[in-house]
C-alpha cells in the first residue's frame, strides 16, 4: 500500500456516495457484459447449448441476480445523465444533490413494477400460479 495521502478530495455525503455507486455499478456491469457475450456466443455453437445456458438464467437465484443487475444498470445510466447535467448545465452543480435523490426515486419507481414482472414467473413456479 502507498503511504497515506497528503490530503483528500473525498467530501462524503451525496456527492461522494453517488460517485462510489456509479463506479461500483460500472465495474459490475462491465464484468457481466463479458459473461453475457460469452453465453450469447453459444448460439453459434448449438441451439441446445444456448437453451441450456438460458435455463440457468431462469432459475430463482439467477433471476434474483438479474433484478440486481437491471437495478444497477438503471442507476448507472440515470446517474450518468446526472453527471452530464453537472458538466454541461449551468445550474447542474447547484442541483446535484436534488438530482441524486431524483435518480434514486426513479430507480425505485421503475424497479417496483420491474421486479414484479421479472420475478412473476419464478414466484408462480415456486408457489403455484394464481390464475
Amino acid at each position: 500500500m502507498p503511504a497515506a495521502p497528503a490530503g483528500t478530495l473525498y467530501r462524503g455525503r451525496e456527492g461522494m456516495w453517488s460517485w462510489v455507486a456509479h463506479r461500483v455499478t460500472g465495474v459490475l456491469i462491465f464484468f457481466f457484459l463479458f459473461a453475457h457475450v460469452l453465453d450469447t456466443a453459444l448460439v453459434r455453437v448449438s441451439p441446445d447449448y444456448y437453451n441450456r445456458i438460458m435455463d440457468t438464467y431462469k432459475t430463482p437465484v439467477v433471476n434474483l441476480m438479474e433484478v440486481g443487475l437491471v437495478g444497477a444498470v438503471l442507476y448507472h445510466s440515470l446517474n450518468g445523465l446526472r453527471v452530464m447535467a453537472i458538466d454541461f448545465w449551468e445550474k447542474g452543480p447547484r442541483y446535484q444533490k436534488q438530482m441524486t435523490y431524483a435518480v434514486i426515486a426513479v430507480v425505485l419507481l421503475v424497479m417496483i413494477p420491474g421486479t414484479y414482472f421479472m420475478m412473476q414467473h419464478t414466484v408462480e413456479e415456486m408457489f403455484g400460479s394464481t390464475t
Binding site: V43, P47, N51, M54, K58, N63, V70, M118
Partner: peptide, 15 residues
C-alpha cells in the same frame, strides 16, 4: 427482461 415474460421466453428460436 421485463416485457412479455422477460427472460423466460428467451431461447434459441427467440434469438
Amino acid at each position: 427482461n421485463i416485457l412479455d415474460g422477460g427472460v423466460n421466453r428467451i431461447n434459441f428460436s427467440f434469438v
